[in-house]
Amino acid sequence: MRCGDFKEDYIKDEEIFQSYFVKFWLTLFFIFLIIFPFIANYYMLYVANMIGFAIIGAIGLNLLTGFTGQISLGHAAFIGVGAYTSAIMITRLGFSFWLSLPFAGLVAALAGMIIGIPSLRVKGLYLCIATLAAQFIFEFIFVHWESMTKGITGIHIPPPRISSLEFTTEKEFYWITLFFVVLGVGYARNLVRSKMGRAFVAIRDRDLAAEIIGINLFRYKLSAFAIGSFYAGIAGALWVSFLKVVTPDHFPLFLSIQYLAMIIVGGMGSILGSIFGAIFMTLIPELLSYLSEIVKIYAPGNEEIFVPMKGVIFGLLIVLFLLFEPLGLAEIWNRIKSFFRLWPFSY
């Protein structure tokens, strides 16, 4: 029986896979992910894709907000920048989808760094307001820079392809999503145990102390913004390629709030938490629309109530998790795990 958590050196403590059990279950989970598209229907695959994009975006926001402690209310704007960059490069410059992806990430990262500059001067509340302003400014640009973004009519994007193989359906796109999710999670998981990850956490916990022990705040705060926005840009580019169209309506303030809800519900400062949060917050609207379908059949005329329900539930989840479980689903998961591991001698 494995009880307690003993580590004898730092290398052990920083290992990603802390035990053979983790490796075993992770392998099983990967096998499940690979056979999933063959057993799932199109709707399930659609949801799986949406969860994938949400995971990438949520990890980006978690690196910025959960690990570095820089509040961003403008995450949707960075997702939008990535999405538009990719769309414009594909349709105007004739880039392939694959080549446009890194550019989408880089342009979003650049936008993030520009918005991040005030973070060196202002923080907390003020930074939150600055990013909120960025959200509205970018929304304005998406709508009004018509020569570039085509305004509210949006841009249609051809599906990605490798020579003759086209990724049009949910099932084909699933492979792209899966690849980038695994890549993104792997990179983030390694980043947070590197020098940079530790610097991020130090800045979050006390920026003055961090500077005194030799962490260059300018460099690391901007890197946090850049990496967070890079993830957002990739998520945006994938998302709109999947939808095959991009319009300014895709990136409202509510999307930023939704991403913040994901990392709060999932657990701030935890990669696993971002994944949980992304899954949870993507499934809830789907569940609600499912419920509204049922209500439509059995009690027609009452399904209207489900439209505002999404907002109410999101808000309630944010408030309740902040009040009662500030570490989120990741912490609940840890508790359940240690309950079973230590059972029946849990103390």
Partner: peptide, 24 residues
Amino acid sequence: GEPIISVIMVTIGLGVILKGVMYM
């Protein structure tokens, strides 16, 4: 006494709830 992000987020959550309830 909680970090400032919690306080800000809780007011945002409150706003979203109020909006939904008013919509209903």
